[in-house]
Design a protein around this nucleic acid. Sequence first.
DNA 1: GAACTGAATGAATCGTGCC
DNA 2: CGGCACGATTCATTCAGTT
Lengths: 379, 379
Amino acid sequence: MGGVRTIARPRPARQEAAPPASPLPLDQIIQGDCIARMRALPDKSVDLIFADPPYNLQLGGELFRPDGTHVDAVTDDWDKFESLKTYDAFTRAWLAEAHRVLKDDGAIWVIGSYHNIFRVGVAVQDLGFWILNDIVWRKANPMPNFRGTRFTNAHETLIWASKGEKAKYTFNYRSMKTLNDELQMRSDWEFPICGGPERLKKDGHKVHPTQKPEALLYRVLLACTKPGDVVLDPFFGTGTTGAVAKRLRRRWIGIEREDGYIDAARARIAAALPLDESAIATMQSPRAQPKVAFGTLVETGYLAPGTMLSDAKRRFQAMVRVDGSLASVCGEVGSIHKLGCILQGTPACNGWTFWHHEADGRLQPIDTLRQTYLLATQP
Amino acid sequence: MGGVRTIARPRPARQEAAPPASPLPLDQIIQGDCIARMRALPDKSVDLIFADPPYNLQLGGELFRPDGTHVDAVTDDWDKFESLKTYDAFTRAWLAEAHRVLKDDGAIWVIGSYHNIFRVGVAVQDLGFWILNDIVWRKANPMPNFRGTRFTNAHETLIWASKGEKAKYTFNYRSMKTLNDELQMRSDWEFPICGGPERLKKDGHKVHPTQKPEALLYRVLLACTKPGDVVLDPFFGTGTTGAVAKRLRRRWIGIEREDGYIDAARARIAAALPLDESAIATMQSPRAQPKVAFGTLVETGYLAPGTMLSDAKRRFQAMVRVDGSLASVCGEVGSIHKLGCILQGTPACNGWTFWHHEADGRLQPIDTLRQTYLLATQP
DNA sequence: GAACTGAATGAATCGTGCC
DNA sequence: CGGCACGATTCATTCAGTT
């Protein structure tokens, strides 16, 4: 099973000091075909890829060759099987490059609709990516089905995948839980479609037909990257990914073919303001806090040797010993975690929340002592 | 684009008179492998297929909740496949048979999760089916992600497809709109997971690990079939499809391998009661209806179709129909508000406070049911 | 009997890091 | 690479048992 790379221990800052020389064209739009341009990027060099590929809507019969170039003059009698086959080849080609340029602990997001998402999903799996979730973007204000022939198409689907089954990946669990009112963030997200002042227009017409809302990218980048991480968007369009990345102080690379989109994206990103450093800080997993050994609490007098601990239901009791180990009334000994496992008969136990001590007339988890210690000793 | 076969023009009744001799094993469970058993069915013979195939979950080791209790996972042999390739071959084989036995104006529904739905979707498209919508079942009460490693997997995906791009299909647009508060039914549906008295148990244990809620099948069958239509379920399990089909006066055929599931399904379907004929009638008028928010209560079982309502003084009576419309004893039909207007001869009527149902031996306004529903489903 | 409390449970691809 | 210590992690609902 894969591993979650939480924002555990402080890593060398990449942005705060002088940015290290990078072989990557950071914070730039590269003009051209996404497959060809990705080929010019080094192996294992980006932390996250967000891709919003053509949906192959089969309305006007928009088609792409395996090299990503557009097929013109499609007629109604174009064979649908050929169309799907061609779209599959195109999808596999750009996803293969995406897999190559992704760091081993990176991840990819792809958005699509029922027209193309199944083909994208199969290609993702076949290339060795490991799907972590499929996410549903529920549109708060979708376009109705005017003819009354189907259900209102009110959502799009995103696939989130790590580089492989055993690969690590970044997931800022605490940030997501905080964002969702202290409940786990679910796989269905509701956002309005992109409109109002956020929607880029030129001469009264929308610049891009499928501009994505910034809120969507905000959640993706907040969940799966850290400040300074490099985000690649091979179908950059009008640069929603770049604008949000800049705002959240992530680095970005965009690939886009069309002049009109590139111009709009450049102006948009130039106008975007990075959030204040302090605003970028997110809720951290406990892992990110300095580690406190249970023995330290004994050593420093926060908990006296000889103190009796028990679980919340007072089924089990144990005594604190001078070295920070516990001894149960039955004679078993071990660390706070180990003894919790033994007594409960479970393979895992968090001793910090399992064991309680008597304070102010009631049982409190010993984790509160750890918090007190941290508050008292941290600057 | 396909054509919608609405229930506009009256067709010869199939059920009211003597049922015509059918080569199909109607209202029966056929024991055996679904591919082999489908081969014995004639070409173009069923109106709808609902399929809940194995998801190929590929679960790893044991999983424990934070409180140390064990999670009862799906470990059945029927969900194990050697590889994705094997799973693809299996999927294409049963879908090919499904395509053959389906009438030209029939349709198919398949449910799955991110583990398998992309592979299913590609097979559906490659076999010539034409996807009409993908539908998201949002679980009101999903199982959390206990390790905090991903987003809560809070939904499953259904694919709805016609037999081909130009094929006709049935879509009861009015029924869906009535059911959804006079708004077009969207592609995201919220239902609780199957539990409580609806969940089949034996010796205190669930009979089937993945029993689907009847509300889900209720909406599918109401949207896409007419009374008397034949519904085939090649992965019948404990017979949710059969039970709902019988309730809605549709014919059904189930294919299932395992004795335990078949026994449970037979008993369950035998106990299911077909709704009153008049309750089955669906709204056919294209006219706009006054706004109601009533269909959900019917769909979720807060108020059974066929229930008689009356006003507070018992001067007027009306029966609840499957799509949330009411039919008076005089034959008038309409939403709860509209029928109140008609019967009283008033220009406006709040159906929520006008209509009452018998509960605890006395009449209570149906608005109390709405309140109950809201209390039960809102955070 | 109503109200409250605690236990049980659901289609789940559910760790990291040191030695 | 394996083995093992450390320690991070849950929401809505139902149902049984108690007050």
